Amino acid sequence: MIRVLVVDDEPLIRAGIRAILTSAGDIEVVAEGGTGREAVELARSHAVDVVLLDIQMPVLDGLSALPELRRAAPAARPLILTTFGEPDNVLAALRRGGAGFLLKDSAPEELIRAVRAAASGGAYLSPSATRHVVDSLADLPDGRADEARERLSRLGPREREVLALLGEGLSNADAGRRLHMSEATVKAYVSRILAKLDCANRVQAALLARDAGLGG
């Protein structure tokens, strides 16, 4: 069972998240809080696998709480859940140790998928958030673009096709439909792409694709 801490200053939002996650069958919401300070304290006192953390909260906002949260409960995986999808927030969340970033208008199944991914040690960034980040970094110095193109030369033609769709912010399932592949096959391609490009996650790969002018 995946143990989750939900932290949001709106009780109605917390109730909705609890209902969605409980419906999954393999996820249990073990604690709730309404501030970043509570997130740190509850994560320290409960053995949680994943923390769903809002950005804008009183006392201590989600982004400011992330470093403290990682120190207080290093085994817990923080997922940022917010209505604010600006690229600066996404990048700040990832830099400060977030395991992923979802917008509150994400589908319920995406929320469940993100929690499962984080609990298994992976990272999750919603396709819409990926698009925000990629679009914000479209204009690059020539040297950076040249370096990106050199790194992409390590990929085969099919891998480049998959990477181009990552650059558009597509999920594995959507990329599979576009390329007439199974989701599992796309996932295998993504793993090989990350290894060849020395990227930590699909977001870094998507940014590299945009740097090189591939797709999108």
Rank of each mutant, 00 (worst) to 15 (best):
L79V: 10
A92Q: 10
A117M: 10
R160H: 09
K104L: 03
P157L: 04
P108C: 09
R160M: 14
A72S: 06
R154F: 11
P87K: 00
E86W: 04
S128T: 15
V59S: 05
T130A: 07
K104P: 08
L66F: 13
V133C: 06
L140D: 00
P74K: 13
E86Q: 14
P74V: 14
A123F: 14
F101C: 10
G85K: 05
V59K: 04
A72L: 07
L81K: 02
D105N: 12
P141Q: 05
A164K: 06
R77N: 02
R131C: 07
A118E: 13
L91S: 01
G121H: 06
L140N: 02
R77A: 06
A164P: 11
E150P: 02
A118N: 11
D142H: 05
V90Y: 03
P87E: 01
G122I: 14
G121Q: 07
A164F: 04
E147G: 00
G167H: 10
R154T: 11
G62H: 03
R131W: 02
A75M: 05
Y124E: 14
E110I: 10
R131S: 10
E68L: 13
L165K: 10
N89V: 01
R95S: 09
L102H: 01
L125E: 07
A123H: 13
A114E: 12
A92P: 02
L163Q: 01
G169K: 02
A76H: 07
K104I: 02
L166W: 03
R158G: 02
V115T: 10
D135Y: 09
E147K: 00
R144A: 14
E68N: 03
T130I: 08
E168P: 00
I112W: 01
D146T: 12
L91H: 04
P58G: 01
R95E: 15
L163K: 01
S128V: 15
V115E: 05
P67H: 01
A65K: 09
L165V: 07
L69T: 15
H132T: 15
G122S: 11
H132D: 13
G121D: 08
K104Y: 01
P127K: 14
A99D: 09
S128D: 14
L81Y: 10
F101W: 02
R95C: 06
R160I: 15
L137T: 15
K104R: 07
A75N: 08
P74H: 12
D139K: 14
A148S: 04
R144K: 13
L94K: 13
R96I: 15
